[in-house]
Design a protein around this nucleic acid. Structure first.
Length: 596
DNA sequence: TTAGGGTTAG
Protein backbone atom coordinates (compact mmCIF):
# COMPACT_ATOMS: atom_id res chain seq x y z
CA UNK A 1 0.00 0.00 0.00
CA UNK A 2 1.69 3.21 -1.12
CA UNK A 3 -0.85 5.87 -0.09
CA UNK A 4 0.54 7.85 2.82
CA UNK A 5 -1.66 8.93 5.71
CA UNK A 6 -0.72 12.56 5.26
CA UNK A 7 -1.76 12.64 1.65
CA UNK A 8 -4.97 10.62 2.13
CA UNK A 9 -8.07 12.45 1.10
CA UNK A 10 -11.62 11.41 0.27
CA UNK A 11 -10.66 10.94 -3.34
CA UNK A 12 -8.06 8.34 -2.41
CA UNK A 13 -10.41 6.18 -0.45
CA UNK A 14 -11.89 4.17 -3.35
CA UNK A 15 -8.38 3.22 -4.44
CA UNK A 16 -7.43 2.24 -0.89
CA UNK A 17 -10.56 0.11 -0.57
CA UNK A 18 -9.86 -1.62 -3.88
CA UNK A 19 -6.36 -2.30 -2.62
CA UNK A 20 -7.43 -3.99 0.60
CA UNK A 21 -10.21 -5.93 -1.14
CA UNK A 22 -7.56 -7.84 -3.03
CA UNK A 23 -5.07 -8.03 -0.17
CA UNK A 24 -4.31 -11.30 1.51
CA UNK A 25 -3.88 -10.35 5.16
CA UNK A 26 -5.94 -9.08 8.02
CA UNK A 27 -3.01 -6.85 8.89
CA UNK A 28 -3.39 -4.77 5.72
CA UNK A 29 -7.09 -4.26 6.49
CA UNK A 30 -6.25 -3.03 9.98
CA UNK A 31 -3.53 -0.77 8.56
CA UNK A 32 -5.88 0.72 5.98
CA UNK A 33 -8.51 1.19 8.65
CA UNK A 34 -6.18 3.18 10.85
CA UNK A 35 -5.02 5.30 7.89
CA UNK A 36 -8.60 6.18 7.10
CA UNK A 37 -9.26 7.00 10.77
CA UNK A 38 -6.18 9.23 10.93
CA UNK A 39 -7.32 11.06 7.85
CA UNK A 40 -10.67 11.60 9.54
CA UNK A 41 -12.47 10.08 6.62
CA UNK A 42 -14.25 7.13 8.23
CA UNK A 43 -17.48 9.01 8.64
CA UNK A 44 -18.79 7.69 5.33
CA UNK A 45 -21.04 4.68 5.86
CA UNK A 46 -20.19 3.29 2.46
CA UNK A 47 -16.45 3.28 3.20
CA UNK A 48 -17.06 1.71 6.59
CA UNK A 49 -19.17 -1.01 4.97
CA UNK A 50 -16.33 -1.89 2.64
CA UNK A 51 -13.97 -2.15 5.57
CA UNK A 52 -16.52 -4.15 7.53
CA UNK A 53 -16.74 -6.71 4.74
CA UNK A 54 -12.96 -6.88 4.50
CA UNK A 55 -12.78 -7.78 8.18
CA UNK A 56 -15.46 -10.41 7.66
CA UNK A 57 -13.61 -11.87 4.69
CA UNK A 58 -10.78 -12.63 7.10
CA UNK A 59 -13.21 -14.04 9.64
CA UNK A 60 -12.68 -11.30 12.18
CA UNK A 61 -16.16 -10.79 13.59
CA UNK A 62 -14.78 -8.94 16.65
CA UNK A 63 -13.09 -6.24 14.53
CA UNK A 64 -16.14 -6.08 12.30
CA UNK A 65 -18.51 -5.53 15.21
CA UNK A 66 -16.21 -2.89 16.76
CA UNK A 67 -16.21 -1.03 13.44
CA UNK A 68 -19.99 -1.38 13.16
CA UNK A 69 -20.36 0.25 16.59
CA UNK A 70 -18.29 3.20 15.39
CA UNK A 71 -20.41 3.86 12.30
CA UNK A 72 -22.48 6.97 12.94
CA UNK A 73 -25.36 5.91 10.75
CA UNK A 74 -25.17 2.23 9.87
CA UNK A 75 -27.38 1.50 6.88
CA UNK A 76 -29.09 -1.67 5.71
CA UNK A 77 -25.86 -2.95 4.13
CA UNK A 78 -23.95 -2.49 7.42
CA UNK A 79 -26.59 -4.45 9.33
CA UNK A 80 -26.91 -7.19 6.75
CA UNK A 81 -23.16 -7.63 6.46
CA UNK A 82 -22.81 -7.96 10.22
CA UNK A 83 -25.62 -10.52 10.30
CA UNK A 84 -23.91 -12.60 7.62
CA UNK A 85 -20.66 -12.30 9.58
CA UNK A 86 -22.26 -13.77 12.68
CA UNK A 87 -23.64 -16.69 10.67
CA UNK A 88 -20.17 -17.40 9.27
CA UNK A 89 -18.79 -17.18 12.80
CA UNK A 90 -21.15 -19.97 13.84
CA UNK A 91 -23.51 -17.70 15.78
CA UNK A 92 -26.68 -17.54 13.65
CA UNK A 93 -28.85 -16.68 16.67
CA UNK A 94 -27.10 -13.28 16.88
CA UNK A 95 -28.08 -12.64 13.26
CA UNK A 96 -31.74 -13.15 14.19
CA UNK A 97 -31.35 -10.76 17.15
CA UNK A 98 -29.83 -8.15 14.83
CA UNK A 99 -32.81 -8.43 12.49
CA UNK A 100 -35.09 -7.61 15.41
CA UNK A 101 -32.92 -4.66 16.46
CA UNK A 102 -32.87 -3.03 13.02
CA UNK A 103 -36.28 -1.28 13.00
CA UNK A 104 -35.68 -0.05 16.56
CA UNK A 105 -32.59 1.67 15.17
CA UNK A 106 -34.52 3.16 12.30
CA UNK A 107 -33.31 0.87 9.51
CA UNK A 108 -35.71 -1.23 7.45
CA UNK A 109 -34.53 -4.64 6.22
CA UNK A 110 -34.36 -5.25 2.47
CA UNK A 111 -34.46 -8.50 0.51
CA UNK A 112 -30.78 -9.20 1.19
CA UNK A 113 -31.43 -8.82 4.91
CA UNK A 114 -34.32 -11.27 4.72
CA UNK A 115 -32.21 -13.62 2.67
CA UNK A 116 -29.51 -13.52 5.37
CA UNK A 117 -32.03 -13.93 8.19
CA UNK A 118 -33.57 -16.94 6.43
CA UNK A 119 -30.10 -18.37 6.07
CA UNK A 120 -29.69 -17.96 9.84
CA UNK A 121 -32.93 -19.93 10.34
CA UNK A 122 -31.57 -22.70 8.09
CA UNK A 123 -28.46 -22.90 10.26
CA UNK A 124 -30.57 -22.97 13.41
CA UNK A 125 -32.88 -25.57 11.83
CA UNK A 126 -35.67 -23.22 12.92
CA UNK A 127 -38.28 -23.86 10.25
CA UNK A 128 -41.01 -22.18 12.30
CA UNK A 129 -39.22 -18.83 12.31
CA UNK A 130 -38.31 -19.37 8.66
CA UNK A 131 -41.99 -19.74 7.80
CA UNK A 132 -42.76 -16.55 9.73
CA UNK A 133 -40.18 -14.74 7.63
CA UNK A 134 -41.73 -16.26 4.51
CA UNK A 135 -45.10 -14.80 5.53
CA UNK A 136 -43.49 -11.42 6.20
CA UNK A 137 -41.81 -11.44 2.79
CA UNK A 138 -45.18 -12.15 1.16
CA UNK A 139 -46.90 -9.37 3.10
CA UNK A 140 -44.18 -6.89 2.14
CA UNK A 141 -44.79 -7.66 -1.53
CA UNK A 142 -41.33 -9.24 -1.93
CA UNK A 143 -42.79 -12.47 -3.24
CA UNK A 144 -41.32 -12.01 -6.70
CA UNK A 145 -38.00 -10.81 -5.36
CA UNK A 146 -35.34 -13.15 -6.64
CA UNK A 147 -32.97 -12.76 -3.69
CA UNK A 148 -35.55 -13.38 -0.97
CA UNK A 149 -37.18 -16.25 -2.86
CA UNK A 150 -33.85 -17.95 -3.48
CA UNK A 151 -33.08 -17.86 0.23
CA UNK A 152 -36.50 -19.39 0.95
CA UNK A 153 -35.84 -22.16 -1.57
CA UNK A 154 -32.59 -22.86 0.22
CA UNK A 155 -34.25 -22.92 3.63
CA UNK A 156 -36.98 -25.36 2.58
CA UNK A 157 -34.36 -27.51 0.89
CA UNK A 158 -32.17 -27.59 3.99
CA UNK A 159 -35.16 -28.72 6.04
CA UNK A 160 -35.73 -31.58 3.54
CA UNK A 161 -38.95 -30.10 2.18
CA UNK A 162 -37.91 -30.46 -1.43
CA UNK A 163 -41.47 -30.12 -2.75
CA UNK A 164 -41.92 -26.72 -1.06
CA UNK A 165 -38.59 -25.59 -2.49
CA UNK A 166 -39.55 -26.69 -6.00
CA UNK A 167 -42.98 -25.03 -5.76
CA UNK A 168 -41.28 -21.72 -5.00
CA UNK A 169 -38.77 -22.27 -7.81
CA UNK A 170 -41.53 -23.02 -10.31
CA UNK A 171 -43.55 -20.00 -9.18
CA UNK A 172 -40.74 -17.50 -9.81
CA UNK A 173 -41.03 -15.23 -12.83
CA UNK A 174 -37.34 -14.42 -12.79
CA UNK A 175 -34.48 -16.68 -11.75
CA UNK A 176 -30.78 -15.92 -11.57
CA UNK A 177 -27.68 -18.10 -11.39
CA UNK A 178 -28.05 -18.36 -7.60
CA UNK A 179 -31.61 -19.58 -7.92
CA UNK A 180 -30.72 -22.35 -10.37
CA UNK A 181 -27.63 -23.28 -8.38
CA UNK A 182 -29.56 -23.45 -5.12
CA UNK A 183 -32.31 -25.69 -6.51
CA UNK A 184 -29.76 -27.99 -8.18
CA UNK A 185 -27.74 -28.27 -4.98
CA UNK A 186 -30.88 -29.11 -2.96
CA UNK A 187 -31.59 -32.02 -5.27
CA UNK A 188 -28.01 -33.16 -5.14
CA UNK A 189 -27.81 -32.98 -1.34
CA UNK A 190 -31.08 -34.81 -0.85
CA UNK A 191 -30.06 -37.82 -2.92
CA UNK A 192 -32.19 -36.71 -5.89
CA UNK A 193 -29.34 -36.95 -8.39
CA UNK A 194 -31.56 -37.52 -11.43
CA UNK A 195 -33.58 -34.41 -10.67
CA UNK A 196 -30.36 -32.42 -10.25
CA UNK A 197 -29.07 -33.61 -13.64
CA UNK A 198 -32.41 -32.88 -15.32
CA UNK A 199 -32.59 -29.36 -13.92
CA UNK A 200 -28.98 -28.72 -14.89
CA UNK A 201 -29.76 -29.83 -18.44
CA UNK A 202 -32.71 -27.39 -18.49
CA UNK A 203 -30.45 -24.60 -17.28
CA UNK A 204 -27.88 -25.37 -19.98
CA UNK A 205 -30.58 -25.48 -22.67
CA UNK A 206 -31.59 -21.92 -21.81
CA UNK A 207 -28.06 -20.79 -22.73
CA UNK A 208 -28.39 -17.82 -20.40
CA UNK A 209 -25.09 -18.04 -18.59
CA UNK A 210 -22.22 -20.40 -18.07
CA UNK A 211 -22.53 -22.65 -15.05
CA UNK A 212 -20.31 -21.60 -12.14
CA UNK A 213 -18.22 -23.74 -9.80
CA UNK A 214 -21.07 -24.04 -7.29
CA UNK A 215 -23.23 -25.71 -9.91
CA UNK A 216 -20.44 -27.98 -11.05
CA UNK A 217 -19.79 -29.07 -7.52
CA UNK A 218 -23.45 -30.07 -7.15
CA UNK A 219 -23.48 -31.88 -10.48
CA UNK A 220 -20.27 -33.80 -9.76
CA UNK A 221 -21.83 -34.74 -6.42
CA UNK A 222 -25.03 -35.91 -8.14
CA UNK A 223 -22.99 -38.13 -10.49
CA UNK A 224 -21.20 -39.57 -7.45
CA UNK A 225 -24.47 -40.40 -5.71
CA UNK A 226 -25.87 -42.05 -8.84
CA UNK A 227 -22.63 -43.83 -9.68
CA UNK A 228 -22.78 -42.34 -13.18
CA UNK A 229 -19.18 -42.55 -14.31
CA UNK A 230 -19.84 -41.49 -17.92
CA UNK A 231 -21.80 -38.40 -16.94
CA UNK A 232 -19.19 -37.69 -14.25
CA UNK A 233 -16.41 -37.83 -16.83
CA UNK A 234 -18.16 -35.43 -19.21
CA UNK A 235 -18.87 -33.08 -16.31
CA UNK A 236 -15.17 -33.26 -15.43
CA UNK A 237 -14.33 -32.28 -19.01
CA UNK A 238 -16.61 -29.24 -18.73
CA UNK A 239 -15.06 -28.36 -15.36
CA UNK A 240 -11.64 -28.47 -17.01
CA UNK A 241 -12.75 -26.42 -20.03
CA UNK A 242 -14.14 -23.67 -17.85
CA UNK A 243 -11.07 -23.60 -15.62
CA UNK A 244 -12.59 -24.85 -12.36
CA UNK A 245 -10.36 -27.88 -11.87
CA UNK A 246 -8.00 -25.98 -9.56
CA UNK A 247 -10.80 -25.24 -7.11
CA UNK A 248 -10.29 -27.24 -3.91
CA UNK A 249 -13.91 -28.13 -3.41
CA UNK A 250 -14.35 -29.21 -7.02
CA UNK A 251 -11.14 -31.28 -6.86
CA UNK A 252 -12.42 -32.95 -3.67
CA UNK A 253 -15.79 -33.60 -5.28
CA UNK A 254 -14.15 -35.11 -8.40
CA UNK A 255 -11.95 -37.44 -6.31
CA UNK A 256 -15.04 -38.55 -4.41
CA UNK A 257 -17.09 -38.93 -7.59
CA UNK A 258 -14.56 -41.18 -9.35
CA UNK A 259 -14.17 -43.31 -6.23
CA UNK A 260 -17.93 -43.67 -5.80
CA UNK A 261 -18.23 -44.57 -9.47
CA UNK A 262 -15.72 -47.37 -9.02
CA UNK A 263 -12.72 -45.73 -10.68
CA UNK A 264 -10.23 -45.18 -7.86
CA UNK A 265 -7.47 -44.86 -10.48
CA UNK A 266 -9.14 -41.73 -11.84
CA UNK A 267 -9.44 -40.37 -8.28
CA UNK A 268 -5.71 -40.82 -7.89
CA UNK A 269 -5.03 -39.08 -11.21
CA UNK A 270 -7.10 -36.05 -10.17
CA UNK A 271 -5.34 -36.05 -6.81
CA UNK A 272 -1.87 -36.33 -8.34
CA UNK A 273 -2.49 -33.25 -10.47
CA UNK A 274 -2.88 -31.06 -7.39
CA UNK A 275 0.48 -29.48 -6.62
CA UNK A 276 -0.10 -28.91 -2.90
CA UNK A 277 -3.30 -30.65 -1.85
CA UNK A 278 -5.15 -28.99 1.02
CA UNK A 279 -7.45 -30.49 3.64
CA UNK A 280 -10.43 -30.96 1.30
CA UNK A 281 -8.83 -33.00 -1.52
CA UNK A 282 -6.66 -34.87 1.00
CA UNK A 283 -9.67 -35.88 3.06
CA UNK A 284 -11.56 -36.91 -0.06
CA UNK A 285 -8.62 -39.04 -1.18
CA UNK A 286 -8.25 -40.70 2.25
CA UNK A 287 -11.96 -41.49 2.45
CA UNK A 288 -11.96 -42.79 -1.13
CA UNK A 289 -8.89 -44.98 -0.59
CA UNK A 290 -10.51 -46.43 2.54
CA UNK A 291 -13.69 -47.17 0.62
CA UNK A 292 -11.67 -49.15 -1.92
CA UNK A 293 -9.72 -51.09 0.68
CA UNK A 294 -6.45 -49.21 0.07
CA UNK A 295 -5.81 -48.90 3.79
CA UNK A 296 -2.02 -48.57 3.61
CA UNK A 297 -2.30 -45.79 1.03
CA UNK A 298 -4.89 -43.95 3.15
CA UNK A 299 -2.60 -44.10 6.20
CA UNK A 300 0.38 -42.96 4.13
CA UNK A 301 -1.60 -39.94 2.92
CA UNK A 302 -2.59 -39.16 6.48
CA UNK A 303 1.08 -39.21 7.58
CA UNK A 304 2.05 -36.95 4.69
CA UNK A 305 -0.74 -34.61 5.69
CA UNK A 306 0.56 -34.37 9.25
CA UNK A 307 4.11 -33.86 7.96
CA UNK A 308 2.85 -30.90 5.98
CA UNK A 309 1.24 -29.51 9.16
CA UNK A 310 -2.26 -29.78 7.75
CA UNK A 311 -4.73 -30.26 10.58
CA UNK A 312 -7.26 -33.06 10.02
CA UNK A 313 -10.97 -32.64 10.67
CA UNK A 314 -13.47 -35.16 12.01
CA UNK A 315 -14.16 -36.57 8.53
CA UNK A 316 -10.46 -37.13 7.90
CA UNK A 317 -10.23 -39.13 11.12
CA UNK A 318 -13.32 -41.09 10.16
CA UNK A 319 -11.66 -41.94 6.84
CA UNK A 320 -8.58 -43.15 8.70
CA UNK A 321 -10.71 -45.30 11.03
CA UNK A 322 -12.60 -46.67 8.06
CA UNK A 323 -9.28 -47.52 6.36
CA UNK A 324 -8.15 -49.43 9.47
CA UNK A 325 -11.51 -51.15 9.66
CA UNK A 326 -11.40 -52.50 6.12
CA UNK A 327 -7.80 -53.68 6.42
CA UNK A 328 -8.14 -55.45 9.73
CA UNK A 329 -5.81 -52.94 11.45
CA UNK A 330 -7.89 -53.11 14.59
CA UNK A 331 -5.36 -51.92 17.15
CA UNK A 332 -4.19 -49.03 14.99
CA UNK A 333 -7.82 -48.00 14.59
CA UNK A 334 -8.55 -48.19 18.31
CA UNK A 335 -5.44 -46.16 19.00
CA UNK A 336 -6.75 -43.40 16.68
CA UNK A 337 -10.14 -43.45 18.41
CA UNK A 338 -8.61 -43.17 21.87
CA UNK A 339 -6.06 -40.51 21.02
CA UNK A 340 -7.88 -38.32 18.49
CA UNK A 341 -8.87 -35.78 21.11
CA UNK A 342 -5.40 -35.51 22.65
CA UNK A 343 -3.57 -35.57 19.34
CA UNK A 344 -5.85 -33.46 17.16
CA UNK A 345 -8.34 -31.84 19.49
CA UNK A 346 -11.23 -33.63 17.82
CA UNK A 347 -13.76 -35.26 20.14
CA UNK A 348 -15.00 -38.65 18.90
CA UNK A 349 -18.56 -38.42 17.61
CA UNK A 350 -21.16 -41.12 17.14
CA UNK A 351 -19.86 -41.88 13.63
CA UNK A 352 -16.35 -42.60 14.97
CA UNK A 353 -17.73 -44.89 17.65
CA UNK A 354 -19.91 -46.68 15.11
CA UNK A 355 -16.91 -47.36 12.91
CA UNK A 356 -14.99 -48.73 15.90
CA UNK A 357 -17.96 -50.88 16.99
CA UNK A 358 -18.10 -52.35 13.51
CA UNK A 359 -14.35 -52.97 13.56
CA UNK A 360 -14.45 -54.73 16.94
CA UNK A 361 -17.52 -56.73 15.94
CA UNK A 362 -15.96 -58.09 12.78
CA UNK A 363 -12.79 -59.00 14.67
CA UNK A 364 -14.90 -61.10 17.05
CA UNK A 365 -14.34 -58.83 20.07
CA UNK A 366 -18.06 -58.58 20.57
CA UNK A 367 -18.21 -57.73 24.26
CA UNK A 368 -15.90 -54.78 23.74
CA UNK A 369 -18.03 -53.70 20.78
CA UNK A 370 -21.21 -53.75 22.86
CA UNK A 371 -19.50 -51.99 25.71
CA UNK A 372 -18.33 -49.22 23.40
CA UNK A 373 -21.80 -48.91 21.86
CA UNK A 374 -23.38 -48.53 25.32
CA UNK A 375 -20.89 -45.80 26.19
CA UNK A 376 -21.46 -44.01 22.87
CA UNK A 377 -25.26 -44.34 23.04
CA UNK A 378 -25.76 -41.10 24.96
CA UNK A 379 -24.37 -39.13 22.01
CA UNK A 380 -26.12 -41.14 19.34
CA UNK A 381 -29.71 -40.01 18.93
CA UNK A 382 -31.85 -40.32 15.80
CA UNK A 383 -29.95 -41.41 12.71
CA UNK A 384 -26.68 -41.70 14.61
CA UNK A 385 -28.29 -44.19 16.97
CA UNK A 386 -29.65 -46.14 14.02
CA UNK A 387 -26.14 -46.47 12.59
CA UNK A 388 -24.61 -47.40 15.94
CA UNK A 389 -27.10 -50.10 16.90
CA UNK A 390 -27.36 -51.46 13.37
CA UNK A 391 -23.61 -52.07 13.56
CA UNK A 392 -24.20 -53.96 16.81
CA UNK A 393 -26.98 -56.03 15.16
CA UNK A 394 -24.61 -56.96 12.32
CA UNK A 395 -21.82 -57.88 14.76
CA UNK A 396 -24.14 -59.98 16.92
CA UNK A 397 -25.56 -61.80 13.90
CA UNK A 398 -22.11 -62.57 12.60
CA UNK A 399 -21.21 -64.31 15.85
CA UNK A 400 -24.63 -65.77 16.54
CA UNK A 401 -25.00 -63.86 19.80
CA UNK A 402 -28.75 -63.63 20.37
CA UNK A 403 -28.40 -61.60 23.58
CA UNK A 404 -26.45 -58.88 21.78
CA UNK A 405 -28.89 -58.71 18.87
CA UNK A 406 -31.85 -58.56 21.28
CA UNK A 407 -30.30 -55.66 23.18
CA UNK A 408 -29.59 -53.80 19.95
CA UNK A 409 -33.17 -54.38 18.75
CA UNK A 410 -34.50 -52.96 22.01
CA UNK A 411 -32.25 -49.92 21.65
CA UNK A 412 -33.41 -49.41 18.07
CA UNK A 413 -37.00 -49.46 19.27
CA UNK A 414 -36.28 -46.56 21.64
CA UNK A 415 -34.95 -44.33 18.86
CA UNK A 416 -36.77 -41.58 17.05
CA UNK A 417 -35.06 -41.48 13.69
CA UNK A 418 -35.72 -38.73 11.20
CA UNK A 419 -38.51 -39.31 8.72
CA UNK A 420 -36.06 -40.26 5.98
CA UNK A 421 -34.51 -43.06 7.99
CA UNK A 422 -37.57 -44.53 9.63
CA UNK A 423 -37.63 -47.34 7.10
CA UNK A 424 -34.03 -48.24 7.88
CA UNK A 425 -34.71 -48.43 11.60
CA UNK A 426 -37.79 -50.60 11.09
CA UNK A 427 -35.96 -52.98 8.81
CA UNK A 428 -32.99 -53.24 11.21
CA UNK A 429 -35.33 -53.94 14.11
CA UNK A 430 -37.42 -56.46 12.24
CA UNK A 431 -34.28 -58.29 11.03
CA UNK A 432 -32.95 -58.34 14.57
CA UNK A 433 -36.19 -59.81 15.96
CA UNK A 434 -36.22 -62.41 13.21
CA UNK A 435 -32.69 -63.40 14.06
CA UNK A 436 -33.40 -63.95 17.75
CA UNK A 437 -36.52 -65.91 16.91
CA UNK A 438 -39.03 -63.29 18.07
CA UNK A 439 -41.08 -63.64 14.89
CA UNK A 440 -44.18 -62.17 16.47
CA UNK A 441 -42.33 -58.94 17.21
CA UNK A 442 -40.82 -58.94 13.72
CA UNK A 443 -44.27 -59.25 12.16
CA UNK A 444 -45.60 -56.49 14.39
CA UNK A 445 -42.84 -54.20 13.11
CA UNK A 446 -43.66 -55.03 9.49
CA UNK A 447 -47.36 -54.37 10.14
CA UNK A 448 -46.53 -51.07 11.81
CA UNK A 449 -44.52 -50.16 8.70
CA UNK A 450 -47.48 -50.95 6.48
CA UNK A 451 -49.88 -49.03 8.73
CA UNK A 452 -47.67 -45.95 8.61
CA UNK A 453 -47.05 -46.33 4.90
CA UNK A 454 -43.29 -46.61 5.37
CA UNK A 455 -41.74 -48.11 2.29
CA UNK A 456 -38.53 -50.06 2.22
CA UNK A 457 -36.36 -49.22 -0.81
CA UNK A 458 -36.58 -52.16 -3.20
CA UNK A 459 -33.22 -53.78 -3.88
CA UNK A 460 -31.87 -52.62 -7.21
CA UNK A 461 -28.65 -52.48 -9.20
CA UNK A 462 -27.72 -50.35 -12.15
CA UNK A 463 -25.19 -50.18 -14.94
CA UNK A 464 -24.30 -47.15 -17.05
CA UNK A 465 -23.80 -47.67 -20.76
CA UNK A 466 -23.02 -44.67 -22.97
CA UNK A 467 -24.52 -42.17 -20.55
CA UNK A 468 -27.71 -44.14 -19.89
CA UNK A 469 -28.36 -45.90 -16.59
CA UNK A 470 -30.01 -49.34 -16.90
CA UNK A 471 -31.74 -50.37 -13.68
CA UNK A 472 -32.42 -53.94 -12.53
CA UNK A 473 -34.79 -55.08 -9.78
CA UNK A 474 -34.84 -58.51 -8.19
CA UNK A 475 -37.70 -60.47 -9.65
CA UNK A 476 -38.87 -57.84 -12.11
CA UNK A 477 -38.05 -59.39 -15.41
CA UNK A 478 -40.54 -57.30 -17.32
CA UNK A 479 -38.41 -54.23 -16.49
CA UNK A 480 -35.11 -55.93 -17.31
CA UNK A 481 -33.33 -54.55 -20.38
CA UNK A 482 -32.37 -57.18 -23.03
CA UNK A 483 -34.27 -59.66 -20.91
CA UNK A 484 -34.17 -62.62 -23.30
CA UNK A 485 -30.43 -62.45 -23.85
CA UNK A 486 -29.85 -61.94 -20.10
CA UNK A 487 -31.88 -65.04 -19.22
CA UNK A 488 -30.19 -67.09 -21.91
CA UNK A 489 -26.72 -66.06 -20.73
CA UNK A 490 -27.56 -66.84 -17.10
CA UNK A 491 -28.85 -70.27 -18.09
CA UNK A 492 -25.69 -71.06 -20.00
CA UNK A 493 -23.43 -69.82 -17.25
CA UNK A 494 -25.28 -71.78 -14.61
CA UNK A 495 -24.50 -74.98 -16.46
CA UNK A 496 -20.83 -74.00 -16.55
CA UNK A 497 -20.32 -73.05 -12.93
CA UNK A 498 -22.64 -75.69 -11.43
CA UNK A 499 -22.24 -77.28 -8.02
CA UNK A 500 -18.59 -78.12 -8.50
CA UNK A 501 -17.66 -74.61 -7.51
CA UNK A 502 -19.99 -74.53 -4.55
CA UNK A 503 -22.72 -72.57 -6.25
CA UNK A 504 -26.15 -74.17 -6.29
CA UNK A 505 -27.84 -71.57 -8.43
CA UNK A 506 -28.29 -67.85 -8.74
CA UNK A 507 -28.93 -66.11 -5.43
CA UNK A 508 -32.57 -65.19 -5.41
CA UNK A 509 -35.41 -64.33 -3.10
CA UNK A 510 -39.12 -64.74 -2.80
CA UNK A 511 -41.56 -62.14 -1.56
CA UNK A 512 -40.76 -62.88 2.07
CA UNK A 513 -37.03 -62.58 1.42
CA UNK A 514 -36.12 -66.18 2.18
CA UNK A 515 -33.31 -67.78 0.26
CA UNK A 516 -33.90 -71.00 -1.58
CA UNK A 517 -30.74 -71.59 -3.53
CA UNK A 518 -32.23 -74.27 -5.76
CA UNK A 519 -31.75 -72.12 -8.80
CA UNK A 520 -34.59 -73.69 -10.75
CA UNK A 521 -36.72 -72.01 -13.39
CA UNK A 522 -38.88 -70.38 -10.77
CA UNK A 523 -35.83 -69.10 -8.93
CA UNK A 524 -34.71 -67.26 -12.04
CA UNK A 525 -37.69 -64.95 -11.55
CA UNK A 526 -36.42 -63.67 -8.19
CA UNK A 527 -32.73 -63.62 -8.97
CA UNK A 528 -30.84 -60.84 -7.19
CA UNK A 529 -30.58 -57.59 -9.09
CA UNK A 530 -26.77 -57.55 -9.28
CA UNK A 531 -26.81 -60.93 -11.03
CA UNK A 532 -29.08 -59.51 -13.74
CA UNK A 533 -26.82 -56.47 -13.98
CA UNK A 534 -23.79 -58.76 -14.22
CA UNK A 535 -25.24 -60.62 -17.21
CA UNK A 536 -26.31 -57.37 -18.85
CA UNK A 537 -22.80 -55.96 -18.28
CA UNK A 538 -21.15 -58.97 -19.92
CA UNK A 539 -23.43 -58.52 -22.93
CA UNK A 540 -23.03 -54.74 -23.16
CA UNK A 541 -19.36 -54.01 -22.56
CA UNK A 542 -16.54 -54.96 -24.92
CA UNK A 543 -14.17 -57.60 -23.64
CA UNK A 544 -11.24 -56.20 -21.72
CA UNK A 545 -13.11 -53.31 -20.10
CA UNK A 546 -14.18 -53.24 -16.46
CA UNK A 547 -17.86 -53.82 -15.78
CA UNK A 548 -19.10 -51.40 -13.11
CA UNK A 549 -22.24 -52.23 -11.19
CA UNK A 550 -23.93 -50.11 -8.53
CA UNK A 551 -26.25 -51.48 -5.87
CA UNK A 552 -28.42 -49.73 -3.28
CA UNK A 553 -28.14 -52.47 -0.64
CA UNK A 554 -25.34 -54.63 0.65
CA UNK A 555 -24.29 -57.54 -1.46
CA UNK A 556 -25.15 -60.93 -0.01
CA UNK A 557 -22.49 -63.58 0.58
CA UNK A 558 -23.89 -65.79 -2.19
CA UNK A 559 -23.71 -63.06 -4.81
CA UNK A 560 -20.18 -62.28 -3.67
CA UNK A 561 -19.25 -65.92 -4.29
CA UNK A 562 -20.92 -65.84 -7.72
CA UNK A 563 -19.05 -62.72 -8.82
CA UNK A 564 -15.72 -64.26 -7.87
CA UNK A 565 -16.42 -67.43 -9.83
CA UNK A 566 -17.86 -65.63 -12.86
CA UNK A 567 -14.94 -63.18 -13.02
CA UNK A 568 -12.65 -66.16 -13.55
CA UNK A 569 -15.05 -68.05 -15.80
CA UNK A 570 -15.59 -65.25 -18.31
CA UNK A 571 -12.25 -63.53 -17.74
CA UNK A 572 -13.84 -60.19 -16.92
CA UNK A 573 -13.21 -57.65 -14.19
CA UNK A 574 -16.21 -56.50 -12.18
CA UNK A 575 -16.36 -53.51 -9.87
CA UNK A 576 -19.41 -53.66 -7.65
CA UNK A 577 -20.37 -50.77 -5.41
CA UNK A 578 -22.73 -51.80 -2.64
CA UNK A 579 -24.09 -49.71 0.19
CA UNK A 580 -20.95 -50.24 2.19
CA UNK A 581 -17.89 -50.40 -0.02
CA UNK A 582 -16.38 -51.49 -3.32
CA UNK A 583 -15.56 -54.98 -4.46
CA UNK A 584 -13.11 -55.48 -7.34
CA UNK A 585 -13.53 -59.00 -8.70
CA UNK A 586 -10.80 -60.26 -10.96
CA UNK A 587 -9.54 -63.77 -11.75
CA UNK A 588 -11.68 -65.42 -9.10
CA UNK A 589 -10.72 -63.21 -6.16
CA UNK A 590 -12.11 -60.05 -4.62
CA UNK A 591 -10.17 -57.01 -3.41
CA UNK A 592 -11.93 -57.22 -0.04
CA UNK A 593 -10.36 -60.63 0.54
CA UNK A 594 -13.80 -61.76 1.72
CA UNK A 595 -13.53 -59.46 4.70
CA UNK A 596 -16.15 -56.73 4.59
C1' DT B 1 -20.76 -3.00 -0.70
C1' DT B 2 -25.21 -7.58 1.31
C1' DA B 3 -26.77 -14.48 -0.93
C1' DG B 4 -24.81 -20.59 -1.87
C1' DG B 5 -20.60 -25.01 -2.70
C1' DG B 6 -17.10 -30.50 -1.01
C1' DT B 7 -15.52 -35.07 2.01
C1' DT B 8 -19.31 -38.79 6.70
C1' DA B 9 -20.29 -44.92 9.20
C1' DG B 10 -24.97 -48.94 7.06
Amino acid sequence: MTTSAAALSQSHIPLLIRCIQTSSSLHSVTAAHSKILKAGAAAGTSTANHLLNCYLRFGSIVDAHKLFDDITQPNVVSWTSLMAGYIDAGRPAVAVDLLRAMPINGVEPNSFTFSTAINACSHLADVRRGRELHARIESLGLRSDVVASTALINMYGKSNDIEAARRLFDGMSHRNLYTWGTMISIYSQNACGNEALTLFAQFMALKLRRPNHFMFSSIVNACAGLGRLGTGRSTHAAVFRLGHEENDVIAGALIDMYAKCGSIDSSRIVFSRIAAPTLIPLTSMIVSAAKHGLGAYALQLFDEMLDRKIHPNSVTILGVLHACSHCGLLDVGLHFLNSMNDDFGILPEAKHYTCAVDMLGRAGRLDEAVDLARRAAAEASGDDGLMLWSAVVAAGRLRGRLDVVAEAAARLAELEPRKSDVAGAYVAMSNAYNFVGRWGDAIKIRMEMQRRGVMKDPGCSWVEVKGTAYVFFAGQFEACPRVEEVVELLREMKKEIGCRRGIDGWPWEEEDGEHDGLGGERAMLGVHSEILAMAFGILSFPKGGKIRIMKNLRMCGECHKVFKVVSKLVGREFVVRDLNRFHHFDGGICSCRDYW
